[in-house]
Amino acid sequence: MLLDVKNIHKTYQTADGPFEVLRGVDLRLGEGETLALTGESGSGKSTLLHLIGGLDMPDRGAIVINGHDIAGADDAARAAIRRGSVGVVFQQFNLIPSLTVADNIAFQARLADKYDPQWSEALAGTMGLADHLRKYPEQLSGGQQQRVAIARTLAPKPALVLADEPTGNLDEDTARVVMDLMLDLAADTGAGLLMVTHSQALAGRLGRRLHLKAGRIA
C-alpha cells in the first residue's frame, strides 16, 4: 500500500478554545490510484493533506507512506520523505520567484538527487512551457505558473502526488487543461494522486472520491 492513514486526530487552538479539526480519519491509497477528497470549507481537507505531506504533525494516529510512518518522524526525516516520495501542488503555486521556469521545474528533482534533464525537458514540453523556460514566474500567467508547479512536482517522479485545490486560482478552461495534464502525467509515472477539491466535476474525473465532514470521512 502506497499510503495508509489510520485514526488521525488533529486539534488547533483558536481564540474560542481548542478546535478538533480531524476526528479519527482513515484512508488508503494504492500505487497508480487517484482519489478526490471533497468537503465543505473548514471540514479539515487541507489539514489532512498537510499532515500526509509531512508539513504538520497529527496529535494521534499513523500516516504510513511506502512503509514509513511519518507521523512520529522528526523534521529532518519528514523533509527527507517530502523530497524523495511525495510531491505537493499548492493552490498558490509557491514557485521560487528568483529562479527561471527551467530552474523551478528542475528544483525539487535536484533536491532529491533525481534530476533527469530529458524528463524535465519532456515535462516542460508536455505542459506547453518550452517557450518560457528562461522566463521568471512573475512573467507568466496564473495558468502557466500552475503548470510550472505541476511540472516541478512530477520532475522527481514521486510515488505520491498531493494536490491542494490545484485549479482553484484558474479560470475554467485553464483549469481543465491543467487537470488533464496532471492526470495524464500521474498515469504515465504510476504515481498515486490525492487531490483536495471543492469542485464535484473535477472530483468526478478521479478514480475514487471521499467526502470529509466535520473532521470525519462521511
Binding site: L55, A76, R82, V88, L95
Partner: peptide, 16 residues
C-alpha cells in the same frame, strides 16, 4: 519568507 516556506515544503530540513 515565502521562498523559505516553499523550500521547506519541498523537503529542505529547517536546520539545513
Amino acid at each position: 519568507r515565502p521562498v523559505v516556506r516553499t523550500l521547506r515544503a519541498l523537503g529542505v530540513p529547517l536546520s539545513r
